[in-house]
Structure formats: C-alpha cells, structure tokens
C-alpha cells in the first residue's frame, strides 16, 4: 500500500466523518487552537513591533529575543511545561505563542522601519501626532510585510498545533499520535494530509486578506 491508498482509505471511511473523533470535530479543534495561539501572539508581537519600529529603539534587543525564541524546540518546551504545570490548554498555548511571536514581532518591526521616511516627515511637519502617524501613515504602507509575518506565524502554528494531542487535547494531531500508537497508518496519513490542507487554506486566506486590506496605491495595481 502506498500513501495515496492510505489517504483514500482514510477519507473514504464514513466512520471518520462524524462523532467526537470525526474529521469535522478534530478540524474545528485544530482551528480553534491555532486561532487562539495566533491571536495571543499577534497581541504581543504587533504592538511591540509597531512601537519599536516607529521609534527605532530597541531593535537590537528585539533581534536577540527573537533569535533566542526561535532556537527553542516547541516539543521540548511542551514536555518541560507539562512537567512543571500539568496538562491543559495553557501548556499547549505557551510553546505555540513562543513559536509565533518572533516572526510577527521581527517582521512588523522591519516593516515599519522600512517605510519611506519622507511621508513620515511630511506628516509630522503638518502637525500630525505620533500615534496617528504610526496608524495612518506607516501601518498602511507596512501592511503587506506585516501580513507576511502573520502568515508565516500562522502556518507554523497550524503545523505545530498537532502537539496538543500529546497532552491529551484534540485537534488533527490526535490522528497522528493515535495512529502511530495503534499502528494505524491510514489514520497517520489522513491526519498529516488534513494538516497540510489546512496550511494551504491559511495561505489562501492571507492572500485574500492582502487583497482586501492593502490599498491599491501600495499594491501598485
């Protein structure tokens, strides 16, 4: 049997489409974990990146923290946190957020830094306040890059959220973890395929968001 046969068998089995271990339920859980982690990471990464990018201060410290965070292995972190804190949603969220903050933070910082200083100077010269300069002059122009940071964070979260299954939570990781344990390779391949598809859907959503949110004057078409 090859991979395609495994996948075919998995998705062809009607039993996999309902119930607490059915595909819709696991998909929903996976999306929920991912959205929560992305939301928390954006809540940290966006404001810090925007403000440091605008003021230009703290860039070095930021790069250092980001590199350190990137070096941490998510799975290792999960195990460590579970040992310290026990099971639950929080031990899953911490490594996911730590994984997602650096790309958001660093890209947002770089995006704001790379905005042409001339319009910023003009805005300041016409008496615009700093907050407004950041939100109305810099952000709209930095948006494509910021979205790309959020996108890579989202993709990483979607693929890494499978670790939730190791601490008895749901999500698409269940199929992979259980499948490996039960030597049910249909299940493993099915779960992995679903994660890959979800990652592609995420890409498509970000592309659509870019079309909607970025001004034609910035997209230049």
């Amino acid at each position: 049997m090859n991979v395609l046969d495994f996948a075919g068998a998995f998705f062809g089995d009607g039993a996999h489409w309902h119930g607490y271990d059915g595909i819709p339920q696991r998909l929903l859980e996976h999306v929920q974990y991912s959205l929560l982690a992305l939301g928390l990471a954006a809540l940290i990464g966006l404001p810090v990146g925007l403000v440091t990018g605008h003021t230009g201060r703290g860039g070095n410290a930021l790069a250092l923290v980001a590199t350190a965070a990137r070096a941490l292995p998510s799975f290792g972190l999960l195990v460590l946190i579970v040992i310290m804190m026990g099971f639950g949603l929080l031990p899953v969220m911490i490594p996911l957020v730590i994984l997602a903050v650096p790309p958001i933070l660093v890209t947002t910082y770089e995006a704001v830094r790379s905005v042409d200083p001339a319009p910023v100077d003009a805005a300041r010269g016409m008496g615009m306040r700093e907050g407004r300069i950041l939100l109305q002059v810099e952000l709209p122009v930095a948006l494509p890059l910021i979205l790309s940071g959020l996108r890579s964070a989202a993709i990483q979260i979607v693929s890494t959220a499978t670790i939730a299954a190791y601490v008895s939570l749901g999500g698409l990781g269940r199929y992979i973890v259980d499948g490996l344990y039960q030597r049910d390779y249909e299940k493993v391949v099915g779960g992995a395929t679903l994660v890959a598809v979800l990652a592609l859907v995420t890409l498509a959503l970000f592309w659509a968001a870019g079309r909607l949110a970025v001004s034609p004057g910035v997209r230049r078409r």
């Binding site: 001339a118 319009p119 003009a122 805005a123 010269g125 002059v137 122009v141 001004s215 910035v218």
Partner: peptide, 12 residues
Amino acid sequence: YVIQNAGLFQHR
C-alpha cells in the same frame, strides 16, 4: 510644509 520628493501618502 513641502519637502523634496513631496512625501505623499502612497496608500491614499
């Protein structure tokens, strides 16, 4: 206030 390269807001 007018500057060398106009400094227009490209998203507007």
